[in-house]
Amino acid sequence: MAENKKLDRRDFIQKGARITLGASLAGIGIAAATKASAEKYVWQIDPFKCTQCGRCATDCVKNPSAVKCVHAYDLCGYCDLCGGYFKPGANKLETGAENQLCPTAAIERRFIEEPYFEFIIDEELCIGCGKCVKGCGAFGNGSLHLQIRHDLCDNCNECAIARVCPSDAISRIPASQAYIIKGNFTETQES
């Protein structure tokens, strides 16, 4: 009899604790759900804030980085003297490696017609260092810019680059608009 009572009491405590825990879980769940959104979020670089510090190349958990240079052709001046393609001080405007700015020679220069050249990024080679972006921003039109490529990005819970980005340029944006492409950006803003 006494034994039974003891068991009952134990059961009772267990049950009480279970209900309390269950209730607090439900509480947390509901409270959090009011702050939650059904939308998926992904990390992206705001090219207008990025200062090309180089950490996108060094700090991504992926190697090579999931950040790549993207070319907004809409903004490009198609310059012969591309500030993003040639090293500062390159005196010969030729495609020789010694004249190129990109450390991995990931930019292809294609002649279109006098005097215009097209510049194409080879994402297989690009490591997202942002050197060309800096050059293009300083001496050109700023058509080159860095973006997190979502086919490569793991969408880490906390982006390892965002943590160290000195310009606070990386934030989470809705996956339905997963890029901030410089040229397209105004288009979507205006339309």
Partner: peptide, 14 residues
């Protein structure tokens, strides 16, 4: 101590 930019676009000499 995070260090500088290994990919710096350097035009200082100019």
């Amino acid at each position: 101590n995070r260090g500088g930019n290994p990919y710096e676009y350097n035009v200082d000499e100019y």
